[in-house]
């Protein structure tokens, strides 16, 4: 067995083990902690599968932003007894899982070896698409409608979360000194990292979603450190959240009215358009994710 395959076997076993612990652990906090570990292991798995874009997204969203959201929800909640799954449920679940795994194995073995049409087509058309990195070209040009709609999902999720908080955001609790000090360092670092990921996105893995996660991290740290500006429920925050979708729609309508067709990017200015939309999107995603965090954090504080 070569060293590479040892690593792969251990990695596959690790993913399975962490996932099982996350599902089967009766303690909710333990399960959530295991879920965070799953994010780390999955990021490594994607790295191993030669998908650095997804590894980056998993590190940023899966274990980063989602982790902050989940842990915040759990830690402020009084510790309740976790519900232990009955023995029958575990046995049935494992059996069903085994059957599903077997069926999936049969199905996946039937996947033909012939390569898909798409990589070649992307490679052929990427000149003039506005980005050298294939993933970015697909997201912002070839299949830009999908990206627009994904951004819209976040907008409406944030709107829905905000609608459920019926009280205004409260004044911050006293913030311990180390948090303030840390925020001073962490905030610019996160913004810088996000900006780098955004700019890198045109030529290598990175882009609006990963950068947005960094910005969201920065806003969350600011919120925890007592700042009540963009991350709160003000009109400005909502305007930033929808700005990405509106900019995207404006681009679409503009290209349609100029007679080129919906979302058709001219190779001459495709690069500029892609970078502009990505920048606005990244800020929107950051503020939107932070809004979900704040809504969640405030909803819990309302005495009911």
């Amino acid at each position: 067995m070569s060293p590479a395959s040892v690593l792969d076997v251990v990695l596959a076993a690790a993913v399975l083990a962490v996932a099982l612990v996350a599902v089967l652990l009766p303690s909710r906090r333990g399960a959530v902690s295991a879920f965070l570990v799953l994010g780390v292991v999955l990021a490594v798995l994607w790295a191993r599968l030669d998908a650095p874009d997804i590894a980056l997204a998993e590190a940023a969203l899966g274990s980063g932003v989602a982790g902050a959201l989940l842990m915040d929800t759990l830690t402020a909640d009084p510790a309740r007894p976790g519900r232990r799954a009955g023995r029958t449920a575990v046995v049935v679940g494992l059996l069903a899982g085994a059957v599903a795994l077997a069926a999936l194995t049969v199905v996946v073995r039937a996947v033909p070896d012939e390569p898909s049409l798409l990589p070649a087509a992307v490679a052929e058309e990427i000149h003039g698409a506005g980005a050298d990195h294939a993933v970015t070209a697909v997201l912002l040009n070839f299949r830009s409608l999908d990206t627009l709609l994904e951004a819209a999902v976040l907008v409406f999720a944030a709107a829905g979360a905000g609608a459920l908080v019926r009280t205004p955001v409260r004044a911050p609790d006293p913030v311990p000194a180390p948090v303030t000090a840390l925020a001073r360092v962490l905030l610019p670092a996160l913004v810088l990292l996000g900006t780098w990921l955004l700019l890198a996105g045109t030529s290598r893995p990175g882009g609006a979603f990963q950068a947005g996660a960094m910005f969201a991290g920065a806003l969350v740290v600011a919120f925890v450190a007592g700042a009540r500006f963009a991350a709160s429920q003000g009109t400005a925050a909502r305007a930033w959240t929808v700005a990405g979708v509106l900019a995207f729609v404006a681009l679409a309508a503009g290209t349609a009215m100029l007679g080129q067709g919906w979302l058709v990017l001219d190779p001459r200015w495709a690069g500029a358009a892609v970078l502009t939309v990505e920048t606005v999107l990244a800020v929107s995603i950051g503020v939107g994710l932070a809004q979900v965090f704040v809504a969640n954090s405030e909803a819990r504080r309302v005495p009911s």
Binding site: L148, T235, V242
Partner: peptide, 24 residues
């Protein structure tokens, strides 16, 4: 053909605009 995508993007943009209007 020109209006078909507008059926999706129009209400979407309007929803985004409505989200900015204060709840009051």
């Amino acid at each position: 053909a020109l209006l078909l995508p507008a059926l999706v993007l129009g209400p979407l943009a309007a929803g985004a605009v409505a989200a900015v209007v204060p709840r009051e």
